[in-house]
């Protein structure tokens, strides 16, 4: 019984994901004014040829800051999970 509910949920999700693709047009993005600005003026304003790097490090630098912070936090959390309280081979979670 539970399996059928899950399958029904999956089918509903598939339909919900497939219906919006009908309104999209591959190869012809709907709203491009911001990206056109980046392509036209990004090279002159920042000097970098790679527009993706310009967007990542300059125009949307806060995104990269948050991203780097997420990576730092993940490493800290993994280190906390595997931390060793004492010098011998005993782990804290055992």
């Amino acid at each position: 019984m539970k399996q059928y509910i899950k399958a029904a949920v999956l089918l509903v999700l598939l339909a919900a994901f497939l219906v919006p693709t009908l309104s999209l047009d591959f190869g012809n993005p709907a709203e491009t004014s911001l990206d056109d600005y980046f392509i036209r003026y990004g090279q002159e304003q920042t000097g970098g040829n790679n527009i993706v790097a310009d967007v990542l490090m300059d125009f949307r630098g806060f995104d990269t800051l948050g991203e780097a912070t997420v990576l730092l936090t993940a490493v800290l959390a993994v280190g906390l999970v595997f931390r060793r309280l004492h010098k011998e081979e005993e782990y804290e979670y055992e």
């Binding site: 000097g47 970098g48 040829n49 790097a53 490090m57 300059d58 990269t64 780097a68 730092l72």
Partner: peptide, 15 residues
């Protein structure tokens, strides 16, 4: 060229 972009690239690469 690039201003701070190469510096930030190197910093992020080290991180």
């Amino acid at each position: 060229t690039g201003g701070v972009i190469p510096i930030m690239n190197i910093a992020v690469g080290i991180e």
